[in-house]
Design a binder for these strands. Structure first.
Lengths: 138, 138
DNA sequence: CTTGACCATTGACTAAAGTCCACGGTTATA
DNA sequence: TATAACCGTGGACTTTAGTCAATGGTCAAG
């Protein structure tokens, strides 16, 4: 669990991820990110972010775009970290993620198909024998 | 613009779409759905929804899952309806939609690829020569 | 040692997307 | 015509995901 590599302060991390300072602090409060602390004079006042936090930020964005709430994302991250030393658990979490993505992709493809058929129909001058839109289920 | 086919009242429409009564009314207020009105005794107190409203509801769900706000969805719907009698405009809107979907799908695929590589790496016992996560941009 | 840049914490505030509730009107059924 | 089941409207309320502002601590440069 080496965290010292590629360490940065919050403003650097902000630039690296595109998240605002406030959003980062908000995510830390919610447990979505857990940076280290590293002070010089005995105290440790500053948050220190590493490369793994950048990856985490990307994952958060991804999950969010899949419709997960931050609460759910935090839970998933916790589950992931809980089984971090158990490859089986890690793999299970990853596979669940991938299943969600696959499902999402097939939804997208069905929607694409729907729009494609509709476009073809429009371009054909909207003939009477319209394709059935009804199998468009999203 | 026949709207009488497959007409239903709001509770039927709710069952047909899975949207709650309140959500439907909310969408109507926002201009996302525009049902007809059909009363018996001179007045027209009740909203009447048709098959095209069911399709609209599906589209709303789809757009929403793509990250659009209701305001944006309403605008897109208005644009679509504005050029309803112009196949060229309709086709343009449809094509823009499809482009968005394609973009989204390629994002999904890149994420799937990322997770797939990570899964393989975990299952291989997390060897030193980790694949580069860095080309995972979402 | 002071100054400017950076950082943390707290709490108030906001917009979006609903949800809930109370009230009153409408319609089908008995 | 009474009554239950439905419908509409208005407004208050809630959750989520941040954003903003005030206050005060930390650190490097001069």
């Amino acid at each position: 669990m080496v965290k010292s590599f590629s360490a940065m302060l919050i403003s650097q991390f902000s630039k690296a991820t595109g998240l605002s300072l406030d959003t980062i602090r908000f995510y830390v409060r919610k447990g979505l990110l857990n940076p280290g602390r590293n002070g010089k004079g005995g105290t440790n006042p500053y948050q220190v972010f590493g490369a793994q936090d950048v990856t985490a930020a990307r994952m958060i964005r991804l999950q969010q775009s899949l419709g997960y709430s931050l609460r759910e994302i935090a839970a998933l991250g916790a589950e992931y970290r809980a089984g971090e030393d158990s490859p089986a658990r890690t793999a299970a979490v990853l596979r669940a993620q991938m299943a969600k993505l696959e499902e999402r992709r097939s939804e997208l493809e069905s929607a694409l198909d729907f729009l494609g058929r509709k476009l073809a129909w429009v371009e054909a001058g909207q003939p009477k024998d319209a394709p059935s839109w009804e199998n468009f289920i999203c």
